[in-house]
Amino acid sequence: MKILFETPRLIIRTFAAVDDAFIMKLLNTPSWLQYIGDRNIRTLADAQRYIMNNLLQLYVEQGYGAWVVVLKETGAPIGICGLFKRKYLDQPDLGFAFLPEAEGKGYAYEAATGTLVYTQEQLALSGLFAITQSDNYRSVRLLEKTGFKYKDKIQPPGESQQLMLFSIELQKINPNSPQ
Rank of each mutant, 00 (worst) to 15 (best):
residue 175 P to H: 09
residue 46 D to R: 01
residue 153 K to H: 14
residue 20 D to L: 14
residue 81 C to K: 07
residue 76 A to R: 10
residue 17 A to D: 15
residue 166 F to Y: 15
residue 153 K to C: 08
residue 144 E to C: 08
residue 177 S to H: 14
residue 55 L to H: 10
residue 6 E to T: 12
residue 97 A to I: 03
residue 129 F to G: 00
residue 2 K to D: 12
residue 64 Y to G: 01
residue 66 A to E: 06
residue 12 I to P: 08
residue 3 I to F: 01
residue 128 L to V: 06
residue 119 T to D: 00
residue 91 Q to T: 01
residue 73 E to A: 12
residue 7 T to C: 05
residue 169 E to F: 09
residue 136 N to E: 08
residue 13 R to V: 09
residue 12 I to L: 15
residue 143 L to R: 05
residue 10 L to M: 02
residue 75 G to M: 09
residue 81 C to S: 11
residue 162 Q to D: 13
residue 48 Q to E: 12
residue 122 Q to P: 04
residue 99 L to M: 14
residue 150 Y to S: 03
residue 70 V to F: 08
residue 40 N to T: 12
residue 5 F to V: 06
residue 134 S to F: 08
residue 173 I to D: 13
residue 105 K to F: 09
residue 45 A to F: 14
residue 125 L to D: 01
residue 2 K to S: 11
residue 128 L to M: 11
residue 171 Q to V: 02
residue 90 D to Y: 07
residue 62 Q to T: 09
residue 6 E to V: 02
residue 100 P to K: 02
residue 143 L to I: 03
residue 91 Q to M: 14
residue 104 G to D: 05
residue 132 T to M: 04
residue 116 L to F: 07
residue 30 P to H: 04
residue 65 G to Y: 09
residue 102 A to H: 04
residue 61 E to N: 15
residue 154 I to T: 00
residue 74 T to I: 05
residue 60 V to P: 13
residue 163 L to H: 14
residue 64 Y to P: 10
residue 5 F to C: 04
residue 71 L to Y: 05
residue 123 L to S: 06
residue 174 N to W: 11
residue 70 V to E: 13
residue 121 E to L: 14
residue 170 L to N: 05
residue 123 L to G: 07
residue 128 L to S: 00
residue 59 Y to E: 06
residue 91 Q to H: 10
residue 97 A to H: 10
residue 49 R to N: 13
residue 143 L to V: 05
residue 42 R to H: 15
residue 170 L to V: 03
residue 133 Q to D: 09
residue 106 G to T: 03
residue 162 Q to V: 02
residue 93 D to R: 00
residue 130 A to I: 05
